[in-house]
Design a protein around this nucleic acid. Structure first.
Lengths: 240, 240
DNA sequence: GCGCGCCATCTTCCATGCAAGCTTGAATAC
DNA sequence: GTATTCAAGCTTGCATGGAAGATGGCGCGC
C-alpha cells in the first residue's frame, strides 16, 4: 500500500470517498464524520485507528488527528489504548441537545427580527420559501423531503443571524443528533403544527417584532421537544 | 533533550507547568490554554510547534495534537506550514460571544427555575452566596475579587442547569473572552446594577417563575453587552 | 470442574525522519 | 538604484518504529 497518493487508489471502498482538495486530515475527518452521520459506523462500534487508516488508504497519523477533532465535536470518544468509540445518544442527550437548540434558535430569531427592514424582509422570504417546500413535501407524502426542507429552514434561520459561533455550535449539535432525527422522522405526527409555527416565526421577523420572533422560535422547539422525548422513552430507545 | 521524562526537567520554565496525570497531549493542551488565557502567549503571536515543544520538553507530535484541540476551541489558528497563530478578538467577536451567552444563560436560568422546589432553593442560595461575595468585594474596592465572584455566579448558574453540552459551550466561550474580560473589568461603571440584577435572577429562581428567571438573566447580559460594546468601539480597541 | 495468574497480542502514544511548501534574502541583470 | 530570480532555511504534513498499557485466552493449580 505504501505511499498512498492523495487522489489515487480508487480500490479503497467503504466509507464516503471524499475528494476534497485539503489535507489528509481533512479527508479523514470528512469521511469519518459522514460515515458516522449515515450510520455506516454504528453507534457503539469500536474501531481501531489502524483499520480506518487502512480503509482510507492513509497512515494512522491523520486518522488519529481527525479522531481528536471528532471527539471535540462530541461524535466519538477516543479511549486511551483501546480505540475509537462511536458515541450513542441517550434520551438524556436529546434533552441536552434540545435545550441548546431552544436557546440558540430563540436568540437567532430575535436577532434576525431586529435587522434593518430590507434584510428582515429578505430573511422572511427565504424562510417562507423553505416552509413552502415543507408544505409541498407534506402534500405529496414525501417525508424525507419534508425533513430536508425543515432542516433548511432552521439552517437559514441561524445563518441569517450572522453569528459564526452560533453557526458552529448549532452545526456540531446537529451532527450529533442527525441520526436520531432520521430515526424519529417517522414517529412525528404533527407536521402541520410545525408548518404553522414556521409561518409564525417568519411573520414575526417580517414584522420586526423581536420578542414575538424569540417566543415563536422557542415555542416551536419546546413543543417539538415535548412531543419527542416521551416518544423516545415510550419506545424504550436507550441509544440512538 | 532526548527522552523527556514526563515529570522531569524542571528547568523548562515558561508557560504553566501542569502536573496533570494525563497524557502529554493533555499536558500540552492545558499549558497552552492557560498560557493563552493569561496572555503569556499574546494575541497575534505566531509560535512554531517546534519551539513550543522544546519549551514544554516534549516532541512536536503532542503539541501538534493539542493545537488541533485549541483550534477547535477557537483559541488559535494553525496555519499550514506557517505555525500556530494566537487569535485576537475583535469587537465583532465580542458581539458574537455575548449573543451566545445571552442565549445560553437565559435558558439555563429558565431550567433552574423549573427545578423541584428543594433544588431550586439550594441553587438560589448558592447564587446569592456568590452575589454576597461580589458585594463584599465591591465594598472594599477589590475589583479582581469582584470579577472572580461574578464569574463564579455565572458558572454556578450554568452548572445548576445540569446540561453538559451547555457547560462545555459556555466554557469554551469564556476561554475565548477571558482576556477581554480582564481588560474591560476596569472600564465597568455599573457594578451596583450587576449585583441588583443577580439578586433578581436568584429571586426568580427561588420563586420558581421560569419566565421571570429567563428574562432577568437575559436582560442582565443584554445590559452588560450594551454597556461594553460601545466602550470597546470608543476606545478603538481593535483586538483584545 | 473451577478459579487464578500469566503471556501473547492488539491497541494507542509519542518520537523522529523525510519531503514538500512558503518565506526571505541575497545576488545578478539592467 | 531597482527589480527579478533563485536558493537556502524555515515551517508543518505525514509515515513509521519502538514502547507501554490493556485485554483476552490459555494453562496450571486445586
Amino acid at each position: 500500500m505504501a505511499r498512498a497518493r492523495p487522489n489515487g487508489d480508487p480500490e479503497v471502498q467503504g466509507a464516503a470517498e471524499s475528494e476534497k482538495r485539503g489535507s489528509l486530515v481533512d479527508d479523514a475527518y470528512a469521511a469519518m464524520r459522514s460515515a458516522i452521520r449515515d450510520a455506516s459506523f454504528a453507534p457503539g462500534y469500536q474501531a481501531s485507528e489502524q483499520e480506518i487508516a487502512l480503509r482510507l488508504g492513509m497512515s494512522r497519523t491523520p486518522v488519529h488527528e481527525a479522531a481528536i477533532r471528532l471527539q471535540e465535536d462530541g461524535l466519538v470518544r477516543v479511549l486511551p489504548r483501546k480505540g475509537i468509540l462511536i458515541l450513542a445518544l441517550a434520551p438524556d442527550d436529546m434533552r441536552e441537545i434540545y435545550d441548546v437548540v431552544i436557546a440558540m434558535e430563540g436568540r437567532a430569531a430575535e436577532l434576525v427580527a431586529a435587522l434593518p427592514e430590507a434584510a428582515r424582509l429578505a430573511a422572511a422570504q427565504t424562510l417562507d420559501a423553505h416552509t413552502d417546500a415543507m408544505a409541498a413535501a407534506h402534500a405529496r407524502g414525501d417525508l424525507p423531503g419534508w425533513g430536508l426542507a425543515d432542516a433548511a429552514f432552521h439552517a437559514a434561520l441561524i445563518a441569517q443571524a450572522r453569528n459564526g459561533r452560533m453557526s458552529r455550535i448549532v452545526q456540531a449539535i446537529n451532527d450529533q443528533s442527525h441520526r436520531a432525527r432520521m430515526l424519529t422522522l417517522n414517529l412525528r405526527r404533527t407536521l402541520d403544527a410545525s408548518i404553522a409555527e414556521h409561518r409564525r416565526i417568519a411573520e414575526a421577523i417580517r414584522a420586526g417584532t423581536a420578542d414575538a420572533a424569540l417566543d415563536a422560535a422557542r415555542q416551536h422547539r419546546i413543543r417539538a421537544r415535548n412531543e419527542l422525548l416521551p416518544l423516545l422513552d415510550s419506545y424504550g430507545l436507550k441509544h440512538l
